[in-house]
């Protein structure tokens, strides 16, 4: 296995046991994301994109097969250890932003750093740098409710980058945004990629998908193409 792999899915399946019968969301999926790589996944609704993203992002574990994050079998780790990986090695970006509504933009970016034990002075400096990075320094003290959708997503991306992750995972990051704003987010992802962070993005948005260095298609729980 090459040392530069960030995450690897080996023959992964995910079955959800339902009262009406089990639902197989993923079927024997194998995927590698190398350090600094930019991968986009597209596919029809319900084909299992989010399910795969959650496995790769260490918030879920497979029914069979294995996920190796930086060569460690995720299923063998405790929830606390997975939480630690998510905190320090992965950045999550959601379709609905999920900023904490009672915290300002800057405080939202500081939160994961505080959890990781970064000292207050270093935290403030890093937050300031990230606000500059997403070009929202002047909105530092604004609450999410005072920001536009695109601004909220930029703050959410800054929050995802707060602890210098090796992998950014994003599920439909432009799903709630108009085309122009979506393009700004795509530009921001390009910069994140250029700065050496691996990205795995699930999107229907061709403007975003086209920027990826590798594009994968999914259908009925399997990777095609």
């Amino acid at each position: 296995m090459p040392a530069s792999l960030v995450v690897e899915a080996r023959g992964v399946s995910r079955v959800f046991p339902m009262s009406a019968g089990p639902v197989t969301a993923l079927r024997d999926v194998t995927l590698h994301v190398a350090a600094g790589e930019y991968v986009a996944i597209a596919g029809p609704s319900g084909c299992g994109k989010s399910t795969l993203l959650h496995l790769v992002g260490c918030v879920d574990t497979p029914s069979s097969g294995s996920i190796l994050f930086e060569h460690r079998d995720v299923a063998a780790l405790s929830e606390a250890a997975r939480s630690r990986i998510r905190l320090t090695r992965i950045g999550f970006v959601f379709q609905r932003f999920f900023l904490l509504p009672m915290l300002t933009a800057a405080e939202n970016i500081e939160l994961p750093q505080a959890e990781a034990g970064v000292a207050p002075a270093a935290r403030r400096a890093r937050t300031r740098a990230l606000l500059e990075y997403v070009e929202l320094v002047d909105r530092a003290d604004h609450l999410p409710s005072q920001l536009s959708g695109g601004e909220m997503q930029r703050i959410a991306i800054a929050r995802a980058l707060a602890n210098n992750p090796v992998l950014l995972v994003a599920d439909e990051p432009t799903g709630e945004l108009d085309e122009t704003t979506g393009e700004h987010i795509a530009d921001l992802f390009d910069r994140v990629h250029a700065d050496g962070t691996a990205i795995l993005v699930v999107t229907h948005n061709p403007t975003l998908a086209i920027r990826a260095s590798r594009r994968l298609a999914m259908k009925s729980g399997s990777l095609v193409a």
Binding site: G57, V59, A80, S83, R84, I85, R86, L87, T88, I90, G91, F92, F94, F98, L100, P101, L111, P112, E115, A116, R159, A160, N163
Partner: peptide, 11 residues
Amino acid sequence: EIAALRALGIG
């Protein structure tokens, strides 16, 4: 919100 915080690694 809480699930998102957990996904971000908030314990």
